[in-house]
Measured scan of single mutants.
Amino acid sequence: NQASVVANQLIPINTALTLVMMRSEVVTPVGIPAEDIPRLVSMQVNRAVPLGTTLMPDMVRGYA
């Protein structure tokens, strides 16, 4: 089972991601792999991401 990136807090739209906003968790469906967390830092979300939501590739500008 692969860990995915999950929002550690509410992340408002257009917010640049920081390490404290994300955690890794084994979830279904699988989202962005946890090993990509360092790559996600400073990328912006293109929608509001509620606490506990799995980050999907289409939620992060420039990721996919």
Rank of each mutant, 00 (worst) to 15 (best):
R61M: 11
G31Y: 02
N14M: 09
P33K: 13
S24L: 13
G31T: 02
Y63E: 04
P12Q: 11
I11W: 01
Y63R: 03
P57G: 11
L40K: 00
P57Y: 10
M21V: 04
V49G: 01
N14Q: 09
A16V: 06
P38R: 06
P33Y: 08
M21L: 07
I37K: 15
E25A: 12
N46V: 15
Y63K: 03
Q2L: 15
N46Y: 09
S4N: 01
V45G: 01
V45W: 00
A3S: 09
Q9I: 07
V26W: 12
V49K: 00
A48S: 07
A34T: 12
N1K: 14
G52S: 13
L55I: 15
L10E: 12
R23W: 04
V41I: 15
G31R: 02
A7W: 02
D36R: 06
A64K: 04
G31P: 00
P50K: 06
E25P: 01
V26R: 07
N46F: 05
L17C: 02
V41M: 07
Q2M: 14
A34H: 11
M56L: 10
V60H: 01
V20P: 12
Q2D: 14
T18M: 06
M43T: 05
V45C: 03
T53A: 15
I13G: 08
Q9G: 08
A16T: 08
A3L: 13
D36Y: 14
P12F: 05
L51K: 11
A64N: 08
A48R: 14
M22P: 00
V26D: 07
P29W: 04
Q2F: 13
Q2V: 15
N8I: 10
T15W: 06
Q9M: 12
R47E: 09
R61S: 12
V6D: 01
N8L: 07
P29M: 05
S24D: 15
V49T: 07
G62C: 04
R23D: 06
P38Y: 08
E35A: 09
D58E: 08
R23H: 10
L17W: 01
L55G: 01
P57T: 05
T54E: 01
A16C: 03
V60M: 05
Y63I: 05
L40I: 06
L40D: 01
P50F: 07
N46P: 03
Q9W: 12
A16Y: 12
M22G: 01
G31H: 02
L51Q: 15
E35F: 12
S24T: 15
M21S: 05
L51M: 13
A64G: 12
L10R: 10
R39V: 12
V41F: 06
I11P: 01
Q44N: 12
A3N: 10
T53H: 10
A34F: 08
G62S: 08
P38I: 11
L55H: 00
P38A: 11
I11L: 09
V20H: 10
V26F: 04
V5W: 01
V45R: 00
D36F: 12
V41Y: 06
A64C: 04
M22K: 00
V26Q: 14
A48D: 15
L17H: 00
T15R: 06
M21D: 06
N8Q: 10
V27S: 07
T54L: 05
V49N: 02
P29S: 05
V27D: 02
L10V: 09
Q2I: 14
L55E: 01
M59G: 03
L10F: 08
S24G: 14
V26G: 05
G62I: 04
M56V: 13
N46H: 06
G62H: 08
S42W: 08
T28M: 14
P33R: 13
R39W: 10
V20E: 13
G62P: 06
P50D: 13
V27R: 14
D36C: 04
D58N: 09
T28C: 03
S4K: 00
G62F: 07
I11Q: 01
S24I: 12
